[in-house]
Design a protein around this nucleic acid. Structure first.
Lengths: 235, 235
DNA sequence: CCTTTGTGTGAACATTGTTCGCTTTTCTGT
DNA sequence: ACAGAAAAGCGAACAATGTTCACACAAAGG
């Protein structure tokens, strides 16, 4: 290890990380107390400023970690789903829901109401984490789009590897995919966020089933005729 | 007027209301300061407790008012849209978006991340406001469902008036409508909340157009064959 | 070895939400 | 009409928060 100082510092930074995450899980983002985090990490409140730029810095850390963990969860689920396009999209939707329900405070922090004083800086670690978060979703949708295209019109499928690397600049991704990606993500996110925040209890709905229906609907509209029948809403 | 005291009280309560709303608009819900509201209303912080039960009471008031205003905006838009089912559903979606973009802090407060300490009491004014908020949406979806049903299968349409009054108990609404209502709401809410919270800027999407596409997709799945062609995603 | 750099502390300050005793104003019942 | 009750509003107080700053101490490097 490069110096005793660096090692101690890394250790303490990890303690701060986990302490902050614990606090977030317990009390939520809006009520997150810097002093409480310091107490749990065994450090004085002012000492925390050597590691993190005040309360906003703490939130930035949590947001970045949240996106990272969320993306990893989705990636693992879609990797475990095999090669079938439908199965992979379903894995995205269902793992999206499960992570949100299992980590409601983190979910609310990264994708819910923005915290008032805080604005993510473009040079911060957040942007890179968002990229990692979005990647598995984009890949799944792009694959589905390509497969549907070739299935319905016999056109040549675009190699999805050509879509990467994509970045903050929207031109790295074909403009034609933007709308389908936004709609697909929004359908999943709408159901999940409403459920996670408690606005869907009246319906008594089986949200997993609704998500599966949405995934099939997306695929149908992308030209996968084989999954169409399941799309029809049963009354 | 029934007593000078009651009149003064009503007046001051209104000042508190608008002061709280101003504060909310300016700083957001998480940073809403009771003392600042008191200052703007021209009252001492402790005096505020005669009107509102602390900070949570202030939030409850704002949440209730928010749902009410949101519902009214949607209702007016759908009333102005005429009798066409498609036009009415589009009005719901587009007015949903407009209100959220025009009142992002209120939107975040009532439908975003729940505020930590706060839990709406069932006997509070919030539940009634939520009812008023949901009513126009439910009506529009129920109408669309009924029309689609008769158009596709020739079955008799259920009079939508039979669906009301509905309440917190889910049995007042036919169970078959729950899923389509949840999916329809979630599609609109997903797009709008993502855009309002700033997570859709990368796409450069025309969200109004996406919303229209979603509305048509819902109608198509409800059996309106006439709007189906517009549903296909253009690549 | 001595200087420079970094690390952590404790005291301080302004601000927050909330409670409590007190005064003043309004209502009410006889 | 007037005494007693009820309500309204205020100011002081308390605990807790985020942030800053001067200072003490440990490590690193010439």
């Amino acid at each position: 290890m490069q110096g005793r100082r660096a090692s101690l510092r890394a250790h303490l930074f990890d303690r701060i990380r986990t302490a902050a995450l614990d606090e977030l899980r317990r009390t939520g983002a809006a009520a997150l107390s810097l002093r409480e985090v310091a107490r749990a990490a065994g450090i004085s409140p002012s000492g925390l400023y050597r590691y993190v730029d005040g309360r906003d810095g703490l939130l930035e850390l949590l947001i970045s970690d949240g996106f990272e963990a969320f993306g990893r969860a989705i990636e693992e689920a879609v990797d475990a789903a095999g090669d079938d396009v439908l199965a992979r999209l379903e894995a995205v939707a269902l793992s999206y829901r499960r992570w949100a329900l299992d980590n409601p405070e983190q979910f609310g922090l990264i994708l819910g109401t923005p915290v008032p004083g805080f604005q993510a800086r473009a040079d911060g670690p957040t942007t890179e984490s968002v990229r990692r978060f979005a990647e598995p979703m984009i890949r799944a949708v792009a694959d589905a789009s390509a497969a549907g295209r070739s299935a319905s019109s016999g056109e040549e499928a675009v190699a999805t590897d050509d879509l990467f690397p994509f970045g903050p600049e929207p031109d790295a991704l074909p403009a034609s995919l933007h709308s389908v990606l936004a709609r697909g993500w929004a359908r999943i996110h709408g159901l999940v966020s409403l459920e996670t925040f408690g606005h869907l209890v009246w319906s008594g709905a089986d949200v997993d089933a609704l998500l599966r229906a949405e995934v099939r609907s997306i695929l149908a509209e992308l030209g996968h005729q084989d999954v169409e029948p399941a799309t029809r809403i049963s009354l």
